[in-house]
Design a protein around this nucleic acid. Structure first.
Lengths: 185, 185
DNA sequence: GTCTATATTATGATAGAC
DNA sequence: GTCTATCATAATATAGAC
């Protein structure tokens, strides 16, 4: 997928690199689309786990959210093609199964919780406890990750022109959702 | 490209839809990659023109920048697959020619100029007259456009969950690059 | 400027031997 | 669990007739 594009994956090439004949693969996978589904499922699971651990270690509220996005960005950049498969859907006739999508639902939930915590802590105004705020955060991460992957895919997270911008962008969240009082965490 | 993904374009399918045999196409185009280059070049040209007109009509500084990004977003969403070809590079062995890239260079220049104007007008602080500020803006547009195209590709610009966020994000630019004095445009 | 015919290469998938 | 053989399909591209 890295060499030929995400939808350049073929069972023939997989077989070639495994030193095996193509029909042998059908003992392990039902079809090419089933293989994509496996890659999608495992990717979603690994990504969720990485994010969850980072957020739990960081605490609550904005700290957790920032740590989670940082971990997410690192994982996505380190797993470029899988992340593209997960978040950009570049394979026309591939629809992930409900099973494969499950971790994604959970991921949204923990981010939503972090936003609610940030509001409870007075880090953000009440409007940040919303779907819209979640979309804003998703735009930040999608923008940074997308630009990094398209323009400097080989640079590690935290270097280059784009990935260092994510913390700066997260710092303006309070400008978008100003806390009413001035109490700090 | 819309139906099969950007790199699902084939000369055979083009011929099929033109009601023509595949070899006939070689009178008009040297190769599949040359066809991609034409699509890229014309797309870049049209996109630049749309942006330039919108910015000139809107005035200078942040007004021009906002109008340009709005026009850009509309164009990209209305020309999804071409925009993907232009900004995401989803075709592995395709490298746009220098000729095809030329409008892109000009596009960066006019955005840079709008940022400099915004600083001169006191709308943004001096640090906004920088490459970094350009990257921030590109992250905004890439994030919004990417999320819109991936999640709600058929909704027009200005509707849905993501594209209405772009003006709100542009509104926080002064929080990222605060003007030193408080003079307004 | 269009066509037929063809070369070359590749794919996903199945049947069935071992 | 791996293989060979095969089916059906598709792609880019060229040669050369008309």
């Amino acid at each position: 997928m890295g060499e030929e594009g995400v939808n350049g994956l073929t069972l023939s090439e997989v077989a070639r690199r495994l030193g095996v004949q193509p029909p042998s693969l059908y003992k392990y996978v039902d079809s090419l689309m089933a293989l994509y589904d496996q890659l999608f499922r495992r990717g979603m699971q690994a990504h969720l786990e990485v994010m969850r651990v980072a957020m739990e270690q960081a605490g609550t509220g904005l700290d957790a959210l920032n740590a989670g996005l940082d971990a997410s960005g690192r994982w996505c950049l380190a797993n470029g093609p899988i992340a593209q498969l997960m978040f950009w859907r570049p394979v026309p006739r591939f629809e992930p199964s409900a099973d494969a999508m499950a971790p994604s639902v959970e991921m949204v939930a923990i981010q939503r919780r972090a936003l609610a915590d940030a509001v409870a802590l007075g880090q953000l105004g009440p409007k940040a406890d919303s779907e819209q705020a979640l979309y804003v955060v998703s735009v930040f991460i999608a923008g940074v990750f997308g630009q990094a992957l398209a323009n400097e895919p080989d640079l590690p997270w935290g270097t280059g022109r784009f990935t260092p911008l994510l913390p700066k962008l997260m710092d303006v969240l309070p400008a978008l959702y100003p806390p009413s009082s001035t109490k700090k965490k």
